[in-house]
Design a protein around this nucleic acid. Sequence first.
DNA 1: AACTGTGAAAACTTTCACAGCC
DNA 2: GGCTGTGAAAGTTTTCACAGTT
Lengths: 213, 213
Amino acid sequence: MKKVSEPTITRLSVYLRHLTVLSEEGVETVSSDDLADRSGTTAAQVRKDLSLFGTFGKRGLGYRVAELKAQLRDILGLGSRWPVALVGAGKIGAALFGYAKFRRQGFFIEAVFDADPAKVGQRWDGVEVLPDDTLEQVIQERKIRIAVLAVPSEAAQAVVDRLVDAGVRGILNFAGHRINVPAGVAVRSVDMALEMEGLSYAVTHAAGGSEAE
Amino acid sequence: MKKVSEPTITRLSVYLRHLTVLSEEGVETVSSDDLADRSGTTAAQVRKDLSLFGTFGKRGLGYRVAELKAQLRDILGLGSRWPVALVGAGKIGAALFGYAKFRRQGFFIEAVFDADPAKVGQRWDGVEVLPDDTLEQVIQERKIRIAVLAVPSEAAQAVVDRLVDAGVRGILNFAGHRINVPAGVAVRSVDMALEMEGLSYAVTHAAGGSEAE
DNA sequence: AACTGTGAAAACTTTCACAGCC
DNA sequence: GGCTGTGAAAGTTTTCACAGTT
């Protein structure tokens, strides 16, 4: 399989989201044009993105919603349940834990870790907050491969190293700090301060240009 | 001024962050090479990014930390305090409200809105949660231009329209739903479900390629 | 007729490489 | 000698445009 860019993958997720809605609405086929409108991109982009993975459409007809949805779920690796570890039981950790959409797409936070003894032992919706030093063991035992990192930024790299050693291969990083990982480990970072500064720039230099999404 | 890409702006924020650390450490000058290493990019990229806004360095010497820091703050529009509105006082709203780094860069959440009467009237660190229907008035009175959107996705677009009408020109969108804004309004979206799916793809198709950030 | 799949073109972003200044 | 600023080259992503299928 060819090299697929990160924006392409993000768009595939967006397509999948709209296909899910369409299928709930009982719509059976959709054109690249329609899917593009809903997803905020162009028909050519939709077709190019999909063509990287196979030929899913029928000329003259469009794409069958149910089929394309199944294909995208498969491509994105959403076919089965992903057990996820959450490291950091602070406010951000709590908000993420409660974020219902994770679960809907098959991501289940099955282990929560924190270094603070006051937090350890709490039960969050049935999931016990575990002490930091059990991290390696629990991740290995439960074969967890994806982790959400919501610790203070000073602690981030040390935790990352331990997560990777224990077998984690994908990290969603909220720590607001660059983290280094070896080849074969994926990181997506969400840095709210950076986003706010981007807005500050845009508002300060507002000249007109719109941006959607 | 030329057109400046979004990745460039994000990198400027990252440079600024490292310059702040350097200046706290008492370092007086920094080379593009050093700044690049710290920021996870290349020296050529640093120089190109900066060159879009002026010539800040000295050949043979590098950049003066204090001066470049001041320039970047100015470019990013961080020279003065930004009053910010938070719409949605749920768990995510609460986590964002408590996010200390916002404040450090000059973003002050001065108004919190929620449609739920049970939340209205609460005081968050001295800031009163206001009823949804006062949104327009308060935003106009306090000249708020940046808002953080943390409402359920169904409500997002309606709130966005009202925010924009009231004068908001930059929106940080946590609603997990595409929003449409007129030209002249900037949006940055944080969609955790999309990021998780990106990780799912990467972990499923793990072949080696690392990604840092 | 409607609409996909895809090579080729255009646009954009990053990297290179070096002249020029400190 | 060390290091910036920048035009040119390379690489990447998006858009165009159309041949080909249903």
